[in-house]
Amino acid sequence: MFQTVLLSLTEGFGKTLEIFALTLLGALPLGLIIAFGSMNRFKIISWPVKLIIWVIRGTPLMLQLIIIYYGPGLILGNNWWGSGASGRFTAAMIAFIFNYACYFSEIYRGGIEGVPKGQREAGQVLGMTNTQIFFRVTLLQVVKRIIPPIGNEVITLVKDTSLARIISVYEIIWNGQAFIKSQGLIWPLFFTGLYYLLFSGALTLLLGWVEKKLDYFKV
C-alpha cells in the first residue's frame, strides 16, 4: 500500500513541480514587463496597468482560477479549454503566471525605484550609455534588493500550487485526497506535507546561498 501511495503522490508532485516551474518561467519575465508598464511616464499606459495589478492582487488566486477556467464557458458560451486535463492545466497556468507576474512586478518596481538617482547620474557623467548604466550599474543592485522578497513569493508559490486542484488539476493534494474516497485512508493526504516541506527547505537553502553570494557589497 505504502508503495502505491508513494507512487501516486510522487506523480502528483511532478505536476506540482510543473506548475511551480512554468509559473516562474512565465511570471518572472512577464513581471518585468508589467513593472515597466506601471512605471511608464505616460498615464494612459501606467494607469490601466496599475488597475490590473490592483485587481489581480486584490482578489484570491482561487477565484481567479475559477473565473479563468469556467468564465469562457459560462459567460461567453464557449469553453475554450475543452474538457480534458490539458485544458484545465493551461487555464491554471494562465491564472498562476498572471497572478505571480503582478506580485513580481511590484517587487521589481520597488527594487528599481530603490536604486538612488545618483547611481544613474554617476554613470551618465562618466559618459555611459543608458544600456551600460542598466547592465553595469543598476541591475545587480536591483537583484540584490529583490532576492529576499522574490524568495518569499517563491516559497509561497510552492504551496499555492495546491490551489490548482480547485479546477481538478491532478497535483499532489488531489492525489493524496483521492485515497480518502477510494481506500478510506487519511494519512496519504497528511503525507503530502512532507513533500512541500522538503521542497521549500531546499529552496530556502538555495535562496540563502544566492543571498550570500551577493553579500560582498552593500546597497
Partner: peptide
C-alpha cells in the same frame, strides 16, 4: 563631476 554623496558603485 564629483558628487556631494560620492555615488560610488557599491558592487
Amino acid at each position: 563631476l564629483v558628487f556631494q554623496n560620492f555615488n560610488l558603485f557599491p558592487q
